[in-house]
Protein backbone atom coordinates (compact mmCIF):
# COMPACT_ATOMS: atom_id res chain seq x y z
CA UNK A 1 0.00 0.00 0.00
CA UNK A 2 2.66 2.47 1.07
CA UNK A 3 4.58 1.92 -2.15
CA UNK A 4 1.83 3.59 -4.14
CA UNK A 5 -0.18 6.72 -3.60
CA UNK A 6 -3.41 5.14 -4.75
CA UNK A 7 -2.48 1.77 -6.14
CA UNK A 8 -4.39 2.39 -9.36
CA UNK A 9 -3.41 0.51 -12.48
CA UNK A 10 -2.45 3.76 -14.16
CA UNK A 11 -0.14 4.65 -11.29
CA UNK A 12 1.46 1.21 -11.37
CA UNK A 13 1.99 1.29 -15.14
CA UNK A 14 3.59 4.72 -14.96
CA UNK A 15 5.69 3.91 -11.93
CA UNK A 16 6.98 0.76 -13.60
CA UNK A 17 8.24 2.96 -16.41
CA UNK A 18 5.86 1.79 -19.11
CA UNK A 19 4.67 4.20 -21.75
CA UNK A 20 1.09 4.72 -20.60
CA UNK A 21 -1.91 4.73 -22.89
CA UNK A 22 -5.22 6.13 -21.64
CA UNK A 23 -8.55 6.45 -23.37
CA UNK A 24 -11.66 8.52 -22.95
CA UNK A 25 -15.35 7.87 -22.74
CA UNK A 26 -18.23 10.33 -22.56
CA UNK A 27 -21.16 9.03 -20.45
CA UNK A 28 -24.53 8.79 -22.23
CA UNK A 29 -27.04 11.64 -22.41
CA UNK A 30 -29.53 9.45 -20.66
CA UNK A 31 -29.68 6.45 -18.38
CA UNK A 32 -28.93 4.01 -21.20
CA UNK A 33 -26.14 1.82 -19.85
CA UNK A 34 -25.88 -0.22 -23.05
CA UNK A 35 -24.30 2.73 -24.89
CA UNK A 36 -21.72 3.01 -22.16
CA UNK A 37 -21.02 -0.70 -22.00
CA UNK A 38 -20.62 -0.79 -25.79
CA UNK A 39 -17.96 1.94 -25.59
CA UNK A 40 -16.30 0.08 -22.72
CA UNK A 41 -16.10 -3.12 -24.75
CA UNK A 42 -14.08 -1.35 -27.45
CA UNK A 43 -11.67 0.14 -24.94
CA UNK A 44 -11.17 -2.94 -22.80
CA UNK A 45 -7.64 -4.29 -22.95
CA UNK A 46 -6.48 -1.41 -25.15
CA UNK A 47 -5.83 1.25 -22.52
CA UNK A 48 -4.53 1.50 -18.94
CA UNK A 49 -7.35 3.73 -17.75
CA UNK A 50 -10.35 5.48 -19.24
CA UNK A 51 -11.18 9.12 -18.57
CA UNK A 52 -14.85 9.52 -17.77
CA UNK A 53 -15.90 13.06 -18.60
CA UNK A 54 -17.93 15.23 -16.24
CA UNK A 55 -20.76 16.99 -18.10
CA UNK A 56 -18.29 17.66 -20.87
CA UNK A 57 -18.76 20.96 -22.75
CA UNK A 58 -21.40 21.70 -20.10
CA UNK A 59 -23.87 19.24 -21.63
CA UNK A 60 -25.82 17.13 -19.13
CA UNK A 61 -24.77 13.49 -19.16
CA UNK A 62 -24.82 10.62 -16.71
CA UNK A 63 -22.70 11.58 -13.71
CA UNK A 64 -19.04 10.89 -14.04
CA UNK A 65 -18.79 8.81 -10.85
CA UNK A 66 -21.78 6.66 -11.81
CA UNK A 67 -20.40 5.99 -15.28
CA UNK A 68 -17.00 5.28 -13.70
CA UNK A 69 -18.57 2.58 -11.54
CA UNK A 70 -20.07 1.00 -14.64
CA UNK A 71 -16.61 0.88 -16.20
CA UNK A 72 -15.26 -0.85 -13.09
CA UNK A 73 -18.03 -3.44 -13.42
CA UNK A 74 -16.99 -3.90 -17.04
CA UNK A 75 -13.42 -4.55 -16.00
CA UNK A 76 -11.92 -1.18 -16.92
CA UNK A 77 -10.15 1.33 -14.74
CA UNK A 78 -11.79 4.75 -14.75
CA UNK A 79 -10.10 8.09 -14.52
CA UNK A 80 -12.88 9.98 -12.81
CA UNK A 81 -13.11 13.58 -14.06
CA UNK A 82 -14.45 16.35 -11.86
CA UNK A 83 -15.08 19.96 -12.86
CA UNK A 84 -15.37 23.00 -10.57
CA UNK A 85 -18.28 24.44 -12.52
CA UNK A 86 -21.07 22.32 -11.04
CA UNK A 87 -20.15 21.65 -7.41
CA UNK A 88 -19.10 23.47 -4.30
CA UNK A 89 -16.48 22.12 -1.91
CA UNK A 90 -19.07 20.15 0.06
CA UNK A 91 -20.38 18.29 -2.96
CA UNK A 92 -16.90 17.71 -4.32
CA UNK A 93 -15.58 16.16 -1.14
CA UNK A 94 -18.62 13.98 -0.61
CA UNK A 95 -18.46 12.77 -4.23
CA UNK A 96 -14.77 11.99 -3.81
CA UNK A 97 -15.49 9.93 -0.68
CA UNK A 98 -18.23 8.02 -2.44
CA UNK A 99 -16.18 7.47 -5.58
CA UNK A 100 -13.23 6.17 -3.58
CA UNK A 101 -15.41 3.95 -1.40
CA UNK A 102 -16.68 2.29 -4.59
CA UNK A 103 -13.22 1.62 -5.96
CA UNK A 104 -12.36 4.68 -8.05
CA UNK A 105 -8.63 5.39 -7.75
CA UNK A 106 -7.79 7.99 -10.43
CA UNK A 107 -9.18 11.47 -10.59
CA UNK A 108 -8.72 14.30 -13.09
CA UNK A 109 -9.28 17.77 -11.64
CA UNK A 110 -10.57 20.40 -14.07
CA UNK A 111 -12.06 23.90 -14.08
CA UNK A 112 -14.69 22.88 -16.62
CA UNK A 113 -16.01 24.57 -19.74
CA UNK A 114 -18.22 27.53 -19.01
CA UNK A 115 -21.92 26.61 -18.99
CA UNK A 116 -22.48 29.12 -21.79
CA UNK A 117 -21.26 26.44 -24.22
CA UNK A 118 -23.61 23.75 -23.05
CA UNK A 119 -27.25 22.80 -23.20
CA UNK A 120 -28.21 24.65 -20.01
CA UNK A 121 -26.69 28.09 -20.54
CA UNK A 122 -29.25 29.57 -18.11
CA UNK A 123 -27.73 27.71 -15.18
CA UNK A 124 -25.87 29.24 -12.26
CA UNK A 125 -22.26 28.18 -12.08
CA UNK A 126 -20.38 27.40 -8.89
CA UNK A 127 -16.60 27.80 -9.16
CA UNK A 128 -16.38 27.79 -5.38
CA UNK A 129 -12.80 26.57 -5.79
CA UNK A 130 -10.69 26.39 -8.94
CA UNK A 131 -8.92 23.40 -10.49
CA UNK A 132 -5.65 24.26 -8.74
CA UNK A 133 -7.39 24.32 -5.37
CA UNK A 134 -9.24 21.10 -6.22
CA UNK A 135 -5.95 19.33 -6.93
CA UNK A 136 -4.59 20.54 -3.63
CA UNK A 137 -7.73 19.55 -1.76
CA UNK A 138 -7.63 15.98 -3.13
CA UNK A 139 -3.94 15.76 -2.18
CA UNK A 140 -4.58 16.97 1.35
CA UNK A 141 -7.46 14.52 1.69
CA UNK A 142 -5.10 11.72 0.68
CA UNK A 143 -1.81 12.71 2.31
CA UNK A 144 -2.99 14.52 5.43
CA UNK A 145 -6.28 12.71 5.80
CA UNK A 146 -8.18 15.95 6.25
CA UNK A 147 -11.06 17.75 4.65
CA UNK A 148 -10.57 21.24 3.28
CA UNK A 149 -11.57 22.64 6.67
CA UNK A 150 -8.81 20.67 8.39
CA UNK A 151 -11.18 18.17 9.96
CA UNK A 152 -9.89 14.61 10.05
CA UNK A 153 -11.37 12.06 7.65
CA UNK A 154 -12.33 8.60 8.85
CA UNK A 155 -10.57 6.60 6.12
CA UNK A 156 -9.18 9.08 3.66
CA UNK A 157 -9.71 8.66 -0.09
CA UNK A 158 -6.41 7.87 -1.77
CA UNK A 159 -6.59 9.11 -5.33
CA UNK A 160 -3.97 9.19 -8.06
CA UNK A 161 -4.36 12.86 -8.91
CA UNK A 162 -4.51 14.11 -12.46
CA UNK A 163 -4.64 17.58 -13.93
CA UNK A 164 -4.97 19.04 -17.39
CA UNK A 165 -2.58 21.31 -19.21
CA UNK A 166 -3.18 23.23 -22.40
CA UNK A 167 0.16 24.24 -23.91
CA UNK A 168 -1.66 26.06 -26.71
CA UNK A 169 -3.72 28.50 -24.69
CA UNK A 170 -2.48 32.01 -24.04
CA UNK A 171 -0.36 33.52 -22.66
CA UNK A 172 2.07 30.83 -23.89
CA UNK A 173 4.97 31.95 -21.67
CA UNK A 174 2.87 31.42 -18.55
CA UNK A 175 1.63 27.93 -19.50
CA UNK A 176 4.62 26.07 -18.14
CA UNK A 177 4.39 28.05 -14.91
CA UNK A 178 0.78 27.05 -14.52
CA UNK A 179 1.81 23.45 -15.09
CA UNK A 180 4.42 23.90 -12.36
CA UNK A 181 1.71 25.26 -10.06
CA UNK A 182 -0.44 22.20 -10.68
CA UNK A 183 2.49 19.89 -9.95
CA UNK A 184 3.28 21.81 -6.77
CA UNK A 185 -0.39 21.72 -5.77
CA UNK A 186 -0.30 17.94 -5.94
CA UNK A 187 -0.85 16.65 -9.47
CA UNK A 188 0.67 13.18 -9.95
CA UNK A 189 -0.03 13.07 -13.65
CA UNK A 190 -0.93 15.53 -16.38
CA UNK A 191 -3.00 14.97 -19.49
CA UNK A 192 -2.60 17.66 -22.11
CA UNK A 193 -5.07 19.23 -24.49
CA UNK A 194 -5.16 17.63 -27.97
CA UNK A 195 -1.88 18.36 -29.68
CA UNK A 196 -1.65 19.17 -33.39
CA UNK A 197 1.07 21.81 -33.44
CA UNK A 198 4.08 19.60 -32.74
CA UNK A 199 6.80 22.30 -32.89
CA UNK A 200 4.96 24.39 -30.29
CA UNK A 201 4.42 21.36 -28.08
CA UNK A 202 8.13 20.52 -28.27
CA UNK A 203 8.96 24.03 -27.15
CA UNK A 204 6.58 23.63 -24.22
CA UNK A 205 8.04 20.24 -23.32
CA UNK A 206 11.56 21.60 -23.38
CA UNK A 207 10.53 24.23 -20.82
CA UNK A 208 8.81 21.61 -18.68
CA UNK A 209 11.82 19.30 -18.79
CA UNK A 210 14.24 22.16 -18.05
CA UNK A 211 12.19 23.11 -15.01
CA UNK A 212 12.34 19.51 -13.80
CA UNK A 213 8.56 19.16 -13.90
CA UNK A 214 8.55 15.85 -15.75
CA UNK A 215 10.55 14.32 -12.93
CA UNK A 216 7.88 15.30 -10.45
CA UNK A 217 4.87 14.14 -12.44
CA UNK A 218 3.94 11.96 -15.39
CA UNK A 219 2.93 13.86 -18.50
CA UNK A 220 0.63 12.19 -21.01
CA UNK A 221 0.38 13.86 -24.41
CA UNK A 222 -3.16 14.39 -25.72
CA UNK A 223 -4.04 12.91 -29.12
CA UNK A 224 -7.35 13.16 -30.95
CA UNK A 225 -7.43 11.68 -34.44
CA UNK A 226 -9.19 13.90 -36.98
CA UNK A 227 -12.18 12.16 -38.48
CA UNK A 228 -12.82 14.67 -41.25
CA UNK A 229 -11.73 17.97 -42.74
CA UNK A 230 -14.85 19.53 -41.20
CA UNK A 231 -13.78 18.39 -37.74
CA UNK A 232 -10.31 19.84 -38.27
CA UNK A 233 -11.77 23.16 -39.41
CA UNK A 234 -14.16 23.19 -36.45
CA UNK A 235 -11.34 22.50 -34.01
CA UNK A 236 -9.22 25.19 -35.65
CA UNK A 237 -11.82 27.92 -35.55
CA UNK A 238 -14.44 27.10 -32.93
CA UNK A 239 -12.64 25.49 -30.02
CA UNK A 240 -10.91 28.02 -27.76
CA UNK A 241 -7.29 27.26 -26.97
CA UNK A 242 -6.96 24.71 -29.79
CA UNK A 243 -4.07 25.06 -32.23
CA UNK A 244 -4.60 23.27 -35.56
CA UNK A 245 -1.96 24.20 -38.15
CA UNK A 246 -3.06 24.84 -41.74
CA UNK A 247 -0.64 22.17 -42.99
CA UNK A 248 -2.63 19.50 -41.18
CA UNK A 249 -5.89 20.67 -42.74
CA UNK A 250 -4.18 20.69 -46.16
CA UNK A 251 -2.83 17.21 -45.57
CA UNK A 252 -6.26 15.88 -44.65
CA UNK A 253 -7.82 17.56 -47.68
CA UNK A 254 -5.10 16.08 -49.89
CA UNK A 255 -5.97 12.57 -48.78
CA UNK A 256 -8.96 12.61 -51.08
CA UNK A 257 -12.50 11.44 -50.74
CA UNK A 258 -13.10 8.55 -48.37
CA UNK A 259 -9.51 8.55 -47.17
CA UNK A 260 -9.51 11.50 -44.76
CA UNK A 261 -10.22 9.43 -41.65
CA UNK A 262 -7.35 7.08 -42.48
CA UNK A 263 -5.07 10.10 -42.98
CA UNK A 264 -6.22 11.43 -39.60
CA UNK A 265 -5.31 8.14 -37.95
CA UNK A 266 -1.95 8.09 -39.75
CA UNK A 267 -1.15 11.55 -38.41
CA UNK A 268 -2.13 10.43 -34.89
CA UNK A 269 0.10 7.35 -35.20
CA UNK A 270 3.03 9.49 -36.33
CA UNK A 271 2.45 11.72 -33.32
CA UNK A 272 2.35 8.78 -30.92
CA UNK A 273 5.60 7.51 -32.41
CA UNK A 274 7.16 10.92 -31.84
CA UNK A 275 5.84 11.17 -28.27
CA UNK A 276 7.39 7.81 -27.40
CA UNK A 277 10.78 9.27 -28.17
CA UNK A 278 10.17 12.71 -26.69
CA UNK A 279 11.93 13.52 -23.46
CA UNK A 280 9.55 13.95 -20.55
CA UNK A 281 6.51 12.36 -22.20
CA UNK A 282 5.34 9.39 -20.10
CA UNK A 283 2.44 8.30 -22.23
CA UNK A 284 -0.40 9.23 -24.55
CA UNK A 285 -3.95 10.15 -23.74
CA UNK A 286 -6.10 9.18 -26.70
CA UNK A 287 -9.34 11.13 -26.94
CA UNK A 288 -11.14 9.37 -29.77
CA UNK A 289 -14.30 11.43 -29.54
CA UNK A 290 -17.31 9.22 -30.37
CA UNK A 291 -14.84 6.95 -32.13
CA UNK A 292 -14.23 4.41 -29.40
CA UNK A 293 -14.66 1.53 -31.87
CA UNK A 294 -11.52 2.65 -33.70
CA UNK A 295 -9.38 2.58 -30.53
CA UNK A 296 -8.38 -1.12 -30.76
CA UNK A 297 -7.09 -0.56 -34.29
CA UNK A 298 -5.21 2.62 -33.32
CA UNK A 299 -3.72 0.93 -30.25
CA UNK A 300 -2.65 -2.04 -32.36
CA UNK A 301 -1.09 0.03 -35.13
CA UNK A 302 0.63 2.27 -32.57
CA UNK A 303 2.29 -0.79 -31.07
CA UNK A 304 0.58 -0.19 -27.75
CA UNK A 305 -0.71 -3.73 -27.40
CA UNK A 306 -0.73 -5.72 -25.30
CA UNK A 307 -1.06 -3.39 -22.34
CA UNK A 308 1.18 -4.25 -19.37
CA UNK A 309 -0.44 -6.28 -16.59
CA UNK A 310 0.86 -5.33 -13.17
Amino acid sequence: MSEFKSGSNLEKVLKAGHFAFTGECGPPQGANLEVLKEKARHLKGCVDAVNVTDNQTAVVRMSSWAASLVLIQEGLEPNYQMVCRDRNRLAMQSDILGAYAHGIRNMLCLSGDHQKFGNHPESKNVFDIDSMQLIHMVKEMRDQGVFLNGQEIDEAPRMFIGAASNPFADPFEFRVHRLAKKVAAGADFIQTQCIYNMPKFKEFMKQAVDMGLTEKCYLLAGVTPMKSVGMARYMATQVPGMDVPDELIKRLKGAGKGKVAEEGIKFALEQIEEFREMEGVAGVHLMAIEWEHRVPEIAERAGMLPRPQI
Partner: peptide
Protein backbone atom coordinates in the same frame (compact mmCIF):
# COMPACT_ATOMS: atom_id res chain seq x y z
CA UNK B 1 -15.80 34.01 -16.14
CA UNK B 2 -14.82 31.21 -13.77
CA UNK B 3 -13.60 33.45 -10.92
CA UNK B 4 -10.30 31.60 -10.99
CA UNK B 5 -7.79 32.46 -8.27
CA UNK B 6 -5.11 30.47 -10.09
CA UNK B 7 -5.76 31.24 -13.75
CA UNK B 8 -5.70 31.51 -16.66
CA UNK B 9 -7.68 28.46 -17.75
CA UNK B 10 -7.09 26.62 -20.99
CA UNK B 11 -9.69 28.65 -22.83
CA UNK B 12 -7.69 31.87 -22.93
CA UNK B 13 -6.85 32.83 -26.52
CA UNK B 14 -5.34 36.09 -27.79
CA UNK B 15 -6.27 37.85 -24.58
CA UNK B 16 -9.94 36.91 -25.00
CA UNK B 17 -12.14 34.75 -22.80
CA UNK B 18 -13.49 31.42 -24.05
CA UNK B 19 -17.08 32.50 -23.44
CA UNK B 20 -16.97 35.30 -26.00
CA UNK B 21 -14.39 37.07 -28.11
CA UNK B 22 -15.66 40.39 -26.81
CA UNK B 23 -14.88 39.43 -23.22
CA UNK B 24 -11.38 40.25 -22.06
CA UNK B 25 -9.45 37.39 -20.45
Amino acid sequence: SKSLMNGPCGGSADGRCEIHKEVEC
